[in-house]
Structures are given as C-alpha cells and as structure tokens.
Amino acid sequence: MNWQQLGRHPSLAIGLMAATLFALLGLVSLWWTPFPIEQISIARRFLGPATEHWLGTDHLGRDMFSLVMRGTLTSFVVAGLGVIIGIGVGVPLGLAAVAWGGMVEWLVLRLSDITFAFPAVIVAILIAALFGPGEINAVIAIGIFNIPVFARVARGGALAIATQDYVAAARLAGLGNAAIAARHLLPNIMSLLIVQGTIQLSLGILAEAGLSYIGLGTQPPATSLGLMLRDAQSLFLIHPWLSVVPGLTIVLIVIALNISGDGLRDAIDPRLRHEGLNHGAG
C-alpha cells in the first residue's frame, strides 16, 4: 500500500483520512479539550451551538464538543481492545486449526460454534451480573464476540494457502507446523486480517454504543458516545440535539471505517471479496 495506490482509490483515501481524523480527535482529548470534561455548570445548560461552545452544552452544562472528543476516544479504545483480543486469541486458533488439522481443527471449530452461541450482549449480561457494568465489561464482551470471527477468517484464509505447493515445499524442507503457520500462513492472510480488523473495529464501536446505552458498558464519570446517548434518553423529546450529536458522530466514524474496509479489500486484493465475513452488529 502506497500513496499512488491511495490515489487510485479515492473513497479509501477519504475513509482512512476521516477515520484517522476522528481517532486523532479522541487522542488529543487526553491532553486538551475546549472545556474540562467534568466542569458542571447548571446555569449554562442546554446551550445551542455557538462560537464559545461549538456543539452547545448538555443537561449538566458540560461542553458537548469536549464530551464528543473524549467519548470518541473511549469508543475507539474499547473497540480497538476488542479487536486486539479477537486477533490475539482468534488468529492463533484459526492458524493452528489449519497447520495441525485433525483433532485441533475439530476442537477449534466446536469452540467457535459455542462462542457464536453467545452474542456480545449475552456475554455483557453475564459479566455484568457477576462483576457489575463497566468499560472492561464492554471490552471483554466485544473481544469474546470477535474471537470466533477472527478464528474463522484466519482458518478460511489459511485453508486456501495451505493447499498451495509452497506450503508442501516448506514441509519437505523440514519445517514444523508452528514454523509453517508463522512463516507462510500468517504473512499471506495479513491483508485479510487487516480488512476484517477494520470491519470489526466499526462493529465494536456500534456494540460499545449499544452496551453503554443500556447501562452495561462505560459508567459515569467516564464518558463514551453510547453513554451520552443514554444520558440524553430521558430528554431527547425536548432536547433532541443532545442525542443527535453523539449519534451522528457514531454514524460518521462507522461510515469512515466501513469505507476504509471496503476500499482496503478492493485495493489490496480483489479476490478477498469472496472470503471476507460480513457480520451483523451485536
């Protein structure tokens, strides 16, 4: 992937740029926001967008733009950690299923069947019932949901690679299963994983919003885009603006990520279209 290729896929360039912009916006909130996030000022609540408060203020008089910045960070971090868990556990499982085959493959497939039976919301419910709600809850729920997705994508991609003669050549050269998985299978499914990672990141952001909205995810005083929607829930008939801002932010981020995912798929390898998984949001 280089600049020239980006130029040939304008939608990919736009998607990547927008997604990076949102991620940076969130990152900056660690050091700077227009107003301190915790600053409550009842006198200044429900202000509309103006020069001082770009996106207005919420029911506690907090600056909406600052909240959106920090909320975006939370969404990215939760979804990103979910993807890392999914890749970290799922990809080795998928590769092992192909490299070892037999019983290992059977076990991985059954394990992923069972995990598929637990949609993210159910996992979040189980964890919340035990330990109470929180960001960690959302990360684990999304992560567990991602594991079988990446296991299946890795297995699917690696199965196609494993029939190639160069894998047989590596076996002839005395390489073991682990070495073949690391040297030949993993590098050749990397583009597949990048594409799926982008898609799961966008699904994770949607899932975080849903979980925080029903109160199983991020808890105050921390903030996330889903939590902002939860706060706005009782007020949205009178002050719809409070739910429009975080909602629209989620939509824009997810569109940016999805466009990047589609674009990467087309740009890296048109053949991937057949292999990628397309999962609904939890």
């Binding site: 966008s202 949607l206 919003a209 849903g210 909205y213 929607l229 829930q233 949205f236 739910s243 909602g247 989620i250 939509v251 824009l252 997810v254 569109i255 999805n258 949001a281």
Partner: peptide, 12 residues
C-alpha cells in the same frame, strides 16, 4: 449509511 446507524438511535 444504514449499516452505520445504531438501531436504538434510529429508534429515537
């Protein structure tokens, strides 16, 4: 766009 809209927000 439809894929990116959270269903509960669309409900609102």
């Amino acid at each position: 766009t439809g894929v990116a809209i959270p269903n509960f927000w669309f409900g609102m």
